[in-house]
Amino acid sequence: MIRVLLADDEAMIRAGVRAILGADPGIEVVAEAADGREAVELARAHRPDVALVDIRMPRLDGLAAAAEIRRAVPETAVAILTTFGEDDYIARALGDGASGFLLKAGDPRELIAGVRAVADGAAFLSPKVAHRVITELSGGRMSRGAEARRRTEELTGRERDVLALLGAGLSNAEIARRLHLVEGTVKSYVSTILNRLGVRNRVQAAIVAHEAGLVPGE
C-alpha cells in the first residue's frame, strides 16, 4: 500500500485528488494538510511514502515545505501538484529534490501513475512539464537560473537588495541613496557579495543577479 500525504490549501482540490487516488486500491491518503507548515508536521508524524504538495500555500509555500520534508523525512518522496508550470517553479522543485511535478489540469491517470512512479523511487514529470524541461535545459537557461537562485539564497536580504541594484547598473553612491545607506556600507556589502558568490567583479555579480531574476523590472 502506498501511503500518501496530500497538501493543498483548497478543500475542494484535496477532495478531488483524494477521490482520484482512491480509485486505485493500492494507494491510501493517510493525512491532509491545508498549509505548508502543517504538511511538514504531518510528514514527520506519518512518514508517508509520497507527499503530494501544492506550490502556493499559506504559512510556508509548497516549494519550501517540499524541501523541508525532504530534509526531515528523506524516505518520503515528494511530488509537486500545481496549476503552475513556470520554469522557476520546475527548476526550484527539482533542484530541492522533488521526484515529480504534476499539473492539476493533467489527466487523472497521470496523477496515479506519478504517485506510483515516485513511490518506486523513479522521477515523474507531466508530459507538458517534461517538454518544457527538455526545451529549457537544451539551452541551459533553466539550469543557470536555478544555480544563480541557489547561490543568491545564501545571501542576506540586504545583500540581495544591494545585488539587485548592482545588477541594474547602479553605482555604489546610487545604491546608497536608494537604500538609505552610507556609501562605505554599500562598498562593504559589495565586497562581501563578491566573496560569497565566488565572483571576481561587479560584472560577474550582475550576471548572477540577472540569472537569478533579482533585477527590478525583469
Rank of each mutant, 00 (worst) to 15 (best):
L52Y: 11
R37Q: 15
R132P: 11
A93C: 06
D88N: 15
R116C: 10
A164W: 02
R149N: 12
D49T: 13
S171D: 09
V40M: 10
I80H: 00
G62F: 00
M142L: 09
A45G: 12
S126E: 05
F101I: 05
S126V: 09
P127V: 10
A105V: 07
T76H: 10
G95Y: 06
A168H: 06
A77Q: 10
L155D: 05
R70N: 10
E153A: 14
A130Y: 11
V118M: 04
L137Q: 06
R158V: 10
A117K: 08
G97E: 11
T83W: 14
R151Y: 06
R116D: 10
R116Y: 04
A123G: 15
I175Y: 00
A164V: 02
S126W: 03
V118W: 02
M142F: 09
L42Q: 03
V50K: 04
G139K: 15
G106R: 03
G95I: 00
A113W: 08
V78S: 08
A173G: 11
L155K: 07
D35Q: 15
A65S: 02
D120L: 06
E153T: 14
A39S: 08
R151C: 06
V115I: 03
L166H: 13
I175G: 01
L166V: 05
F101C: 06
L137D: 09
D161Y: 03
L103I: 12
A168C: 05
A91F: 08
A113Y: 07
A130L: 09
E153P: 05
A173Q: 11
E41I: 14
I112L: 05
R144L: 09
A123I: 15
I55H: 04
A98N: 07
R59Q: 13
A51W: 02
Y89R: 01
L102T: 04
R158L: 14
V115W: 11
P48S: 00
G97K: 09
A113F: 07
V73W: 06
V133W: 00
R71M: 01
G97F: 13
I112Q: 03
I80A: 00
K128T: 12
L102K: 03
A105K: 14
R92E: 12
D87F: 13
D107F: 04
E86C: 07
A66P: 12
V133R: 01
E159Q: 09
A168F: 12
G167E: 02
A122Q: 13
K128H: 13
P108E: 12
A67C: 14
S143Q: 14
R109A: 07
R116V: 10
R56N: 15
